[in-house]
């Protein structure tokens, strides 16, 4: 059951992402992407990471994509005819490189090798403990980084 859901979701993700990146209309692309992210969130959930799944929906599909939309609106980029979109000449190197990269990666990732059969799901408690016991500094760094994202954005946004 979970397996089937996984493959379905995987298909949704790939297709949605494919649409997202080929879509001439940026706003539409964002919408496709949100779809993809939702599906991804479900996969996260299936993989035993409910918290990450939730954040994926809230932060990614929610905040970040909205930020994108906001900027697109602000810069008035919602008109595909204004922005030239990639043609065949742009796609073939992209496809080629992406393909080679993918092929190589897939080859590497599918080489059978000894590994654990798979662990169980992780509870939120474990997650929280790890976060603040082992990676306390990481939280600090991230907080600082977010602060400076603010500082930077303010600085750049300030009109002279």
């Amino acid at each position: 059951m979970e397996q089937i859901i996984f493959y379905i979701l995987a298909a949704i993700i790939v297709i949605a992402t494919l649409f997202a990146i080929t879509e001439r209309h940026t706003v539409h692309a964002i919408v496709y992407l949100v779809t993809s992210f939702f599906a991804l969130a479900v996969i996260f959930y299936l993989l035993g990471a409910p918290l990450v799944a939730v954040f994926e929906v809230i932060i990614y599909a929610g905040a970040i994509m909205v930020l994108f939309l906001f900027v697109i609106m602000m810069l008035d980029l919602g008109h595909p005819e204004k922005v030239s979109s990639p043609g065949w000449r742009d796609w073939w190197p992209a496809t080629l490189l992406g393909g080679v990269l993918l092929a190589a990666t897939v080859l590497l990732l599918t080489v059978p090798h000894a590994g654990p059969a798979g662990g169980g799901a992780i509870g939120v408690r474990d997650f929280a403990r790890a976060l603040f016991r082992q990676y306390g500094i990481a939280v600090e760094v991230i907080s600082m980084q977010l602060l400076f994202a603010l500082v930077g954005a303010l600085y750049l946004g300030r009109r002279r």
């Binding site: 490189l97 990269l101 190589a104 990666t105 080859l107 590497l108 080489v111």
Partner: peptide, 20 residues
């Protein structure tokens, strides 16, 4: 970006070739 990606592709292709 293209150059970087090409480098990455080459690198990974090499690694795949080594492993196989």
């Amino acid at each position: 970006i293209l150059s970087l990606a090409a480098g990455a592709a080459l690198l990974l292709a090499y690694l795949a070739w080594v492993v196989l």
